[in-house]
Nucleic acid binder design. Structure first.
Length: 274
DNA sequence: GCCCAGGGATGCG
DNA sequence: CGCATCCATGGG
């Protein structure tokens, strides 16, 4: 539930919108907690301030339409959570991570960001991405836009190493060259499986990173990214299987179209609560 | 010093 | 196909 004012989205119904849970649940990296009640979030070349009050959240931005879509505000998450509550293993994760929403992020930004995320931790991922943005992204007021493909193409493998990307620097350099040959907007029309096959041809994109890109950058819900935390959850709840690709298939079979949502609740609560 | 982080590429059988 | 090994970097 939301209403609009000039340069402002006002959200009531806070059980379906919790800024901390949305931004800190591991799906996005370009956010900052400015104080207890204020976060900044940058997506592509756009920025928003998200302010929490007792009975509402206000999103202040120059591009209201963009952030209505970005925060998925036209989807009723109470229905999603009700459907998820049929699974006993989601009881605690749903209570803990209430107010999570899956952000509709930019595809190109998601590809680059999740290549960096591989075998890495969120603090370092944020630091590397910020350095890349600052180096070649457009400066807009007090922040830097996520670079365009053309801007990233000017960076060398050594540049990425200097930003701390380590061995992922080669993946980034090579994938950026591959992306110069395709039209990402056209690819969005492909089925989940076809899109995944394409993503797997990119350097530094394996099954898990591809699933993250599909979920966060292509709005595909029938995927289940399995990282170290989800592997731990699976071991606790189901046990047996250790092959992450097989675990992912089993969990997609279990949750179907709700897989992406279920995954995010399980990931967040496991990482925060252990 | 070790282990771990939103894993992937490579090589070997 | 499955599996082992290697890969930068910083924090605990």
């Amino acid at each position: 539930m939301y209403k609009l004012q000039k340069n402002k989205i006002i959200i009531t119904g806070l059980s379906d919108f919790n800024t901390k849970h949305i931004l800190e649940c591991g799906q996005v990296f370009r956010f900052k907690e400015l104080d207890k009640s204020t976060y900044s979030i940058i997506s592509k070349d756009k920025k928003a301030l998200v302010k929490s009050y007792e009975n509402r959240v206000e999103i202040e931005t120059e591009d209201v339409e963009y952030f209505i879509n970005y925060f998925d505000l036209n989807v009723d998450y109470s229905k999603i959570k009700k459907a998820l509550s049929n699974f006993a293993e989601l009881d605690k994760p749903l209570k803990f991570g209430y107010g999570i929403r899956i952000l509709k992020q930019d595809l190109f930004e998601s590809i680059i960001s999740f290549i960096i995320s591989a075998n890495n931790n969120i603090k370092r991922i944020q630091s590397i991405i910020e350095k890349i943005c600052k180096s070649v992204g457009y400066q807009i007021g007090d922040y830097y836009a996520f670079p365009t493909l053309e801007q990233l193409s000017t960076l060398s493998e050594q540049d990425f190493k200097n930003f701390g990307a380590g061995y992922r620097s080669e993946y980034l350099y090579k994938t950026i060259r591959l992306l110069q040959k395709v039209n990402l907007e056209e690819l969005k029309n492909l089925s989940t499986q076809e899109l995944k096959e394409f993503l797997l041809t990119l350097f530094g994109v394996g099954p898990k990173v591809a699933d993250c890109i599909l979920l966060f950058g292509c709005y595909k819900q029938d995927v289940f990214p399995v990282d170290t935390w989800i592997a731990k959850v699976y071991h606790d709840v189901f046990g047996g299987e250790t092959n992450r690709v097989k675990i992912s298939k089993q969990l997609v079979d279990r949750y179907g179209k709700l897989s992406g949502y279920a995954q995010q609740y399980l990931f967040y609560s496991k990482r925060e609560l252990g």
